[in-house]
Amino acid sequence: MLLFVGGPLDGRVEIREARHGEPLPTVTHVHLHGGPKVVHRYDLEPLTEGLGVYNLRPPARKPARDESVAD
């Protein structure tokens, strides 16, 4: 059983059968709508055999452009 914590999948529970193999270390969720696409990534934290939590990965910080330097 896998539990999602945070973001749009918060609270979702997924039951994986053994035949599907091990869960992926990272799951990407892409939301498409009228505006720009929104991407969320969840990283797996295994707890015990057959039980894990996918935690929402914090957003990547883009480096701020230094406005003090002339082009």
Results as ranks from 00 to 15, higher is better:
15 I>T: 10
66 D>V: 13
23 P>H: 06
23 P>M: 03
43 D>C: 07
24 L>H: 05
23 P>C: 06
45 E>H: 13
16 R>G: 04
47 L>V: 15
5 V>H: 08
69 V>H: 10
54 Y>R: 10
13 V>N: 02
27 V>E: 00
55 N>G: 08
17 E>N: 12
69 V>S: 13
34 G>N: 01
13 V>L: 09
71 D>I: 11
4 F>I: 08
24 L>N: 04
60 A>K: 11
57 R>A: 14
50 G>C: 09
60 A>P: 01
58 P>F: 02
32 L>W: 05
31 H>M: 06
46 P>M: 08
69 V>N: 05
70 A>Y: 14
13 V>T: 11
4 F>L: 10
10 D>L: 03
33 H>D: 14
25 P>R: 07
68 S>F: 14
38 V>Q: 13
64 A>F: 06
12 R>I: 09
19 R>F: 06
68 S>Q: 10
50 G>M: 10
2 L>A: 05
53 V>T: 14
2 L>Q: 06
13 V>D: 01
15 I>N: 07
63 P>C: 04
23 P>D: 03
20 H>S: 08
7 G>I: 00
24 L>T: 04
38 V>N: 04
50 G>F: 10
27 V>P: 00
65 R>P: 02
34 G>V: 00
11 G>T: 07
36 P>W: 01
29 H>L: 10
1 M>P: 10
13 V>E: 13
12 R>L: 15
8 P>Y: 04
9 L>H: 07
1 M>R: 10
51 L>H: 10
41 R>Q: 15
7 G>A: 02
50 G>W: 09
17 E>F: 14
25 P>E: 04
40 H>K: 01
27 V>W: 01
26 T>H: 04
27 V>M: 01
2 L>D: 09
36 P>E: 12
55 N>Q: 14
61 R>Q: 15
15 I>C: 05
68 S>G: 08
8 P>M: 05
4 F>C: 08
66 D>E: 10
41 R>V: 07
